[in-house]
Simulated assay, not measured.
Amino acid sequence: MCPLKTGDLQRIFIELDKNGDGFVSLEELNWLLERIRVQQSLNDLESLVGKRSLDFTEFLLFWDSISKPEYDMEEADLANAFNVFDLNGDGFISSEELQYVLSRLGLWNENTGKDCKSMICMYDTNFDGLLDFQEFKYMMSHTTQS
């Protein structure tokens, strides 16, 4: 997605925690992964996470573990995730496409959302205002926290 700070991840956690119990279940976590077309069985996800639900601190650790460059997402998984955001199929992700998809996932709204243009600018190495697949791959392998 984009470099996510602790506040961003907290909003995602709250959105995922559908029953409001302060934990994200593997089913709730898998729902998000499926939305970005990362296919994991619940058994594989449980093996990765080590338990059936995560509190916010554990969710941060999980996100950090899958966001590091050494987490080697399959090229096909990255391509699928890229295609989720590339709505018009032109090979680029625009700020409008990013905002639309994040809104549909319940992860962005006008009151709490960041400017999607500035999110894209952070990884737009050729300064065309769009993310190509290589820029997207780089973005997916990095995260910042504050």
Rank of each mutant, 00 (worst) to 15 (best):
C2P: 01
L4F: 06
L4T: 04
L4P: 00
T6K: 15
G7L: 06
G7R: 09
I12P: 00
I12F: 00
E15M: 00
L16S: 04
G20F: 00
G20I: 01
G20V: 03
G20T: 03
G22D: 02
G22Q: 01
F23T: 04
E27L: 01
E27N: 02
L29G: 03
N30A: 08
I36S: 03
Q39F: 04
Q39S: 13
Q39W: 02
S41H: 08
D44G: 08
L45R: 12
E46Y: 07
S47R: 07
L48N: 03
K51F: 01
L54K: 03
D55G: 04
F56W: 04
T57N: 08
E58W: 00
L60V: 08
F62I: 02
I66M: 14
S67R: 13
K68Y: 12
P69K: 09
E70H: 13
M73I: 05
A76K: 14
L78D: 12
A79R: 15
A79M: 12
V84C: 11
V84I: 08
F85Q: 10
F85R: 07
F85D: 13
D86E: 05
N88T: 06
N88A: 05
G89H: 09
D90G: 12
D90M: 13
F92E: 06
F92H: 09
F92I: 06
I93F: 01
E97P: 02
S103H: 12
W108A: 04
W108F: 09
C116N: 04
S118I: 12
M119P: 01
M122Q: 14
Y123M: 07
T125Q: 12
T125N: 10
T125Y: 03
N126Q: 13
L130Y: 07
L130T: 05
D132T: 09
D132Y: 09
F133D: 13
F133K: 09
E135G: 08
K137W: 11
K137T: 08
M139R: 10
M139C: 15
M140Q: 07
H142K: 14
T143D: 09
